[in-house]
Amino acid sequence: MVKAKQSMRQAGATGLRAWMRRHAFSLLSSLGSLARYPLAALMTVAVVAFAIAMPLALQLALDNIERLSKQWERLDTLSVFVDSRLERPAIDRLASRLSTWNGVLAVDPISPDQGLQELSAQLGLESAEDVLENNPLPWVLEVTLDGVGDRSGLIDRLQSQSEVSNVLADIQWLERLDAMTELLGQLTLLLAGLLAAGVAVVIGNTIRLDVQNRREEIEVLALVGATAAFIRRPFLYSGLWYGLLGGLMAWALLSAGLMVLQDPVARLGQTYTESLRLLGPSPLVIVMAVGGSALFGLLGAWLAVSQHLRRIDP
């Protein structure tokens, strides 16, 4: 052992500077192998980029939908149908009581007459009063929510009031959308996991071919005293580059897609007289996607190289 250390020192193999030089050599060597077959390298990078961009785009779409639905929820009101036997003073008491609740922004009582007028206007009738002998509509309280609190809990609580006959929340579709985006979010995670594994496999396969092509070089390196770590290192760097470049390319693709979609989305918003805007991925997501891609590239390279160097066994 002592002898081995001595011989290492004799060969100039110790020290931080020597370590850095060896790494610099591996780094350059890995870049060289990428540059030697630029088209093949580009193809691998592109495959990685697509694999990363797909779940990223899906996640981005879901993010935007979620943000929009939050916006719509905030505008929403509940229609509370009051027991038809109740009359004016009781209605006002109920309204003032409800308005003190947490999560309730405002309560507007709508009288049966008002309701009938609105209805007839909506149905395009001259006057519903002409058709109906007596007004069948109850008092309705329009409850505006602050959009922060627990909506369904509030609805349950309203429903349980003895004066309330029915609560109409016509934003059920929003709830469904929420559930759907949540489901799709889970699917995206699953897809991201699969595609990350795909990235590792694609890069691993590219590295495997590289190892095969450079078999002679590997053997010669081993003959002149290269350690296994030294032989492995350029390939690991290559894997890292493929992953990193793929991740960056995915980001570029996504940004380009966002730019293309910005105008159509704004136009769509105009038809709803709302200002719609697509938001890009957050810096954290970008860092995670690019970093994760690089990491999985490294992992794939490591798997391929360890396997193949053992098989070549120089």
Partner: peptide, 8 residues
């Protein structure tokens, strides 16, 4: 090559 391996 041998010197590069040794980090000279």
């Amino acid at each position: 090559l041998p010197l590069m391996i040794a980090g000279v």
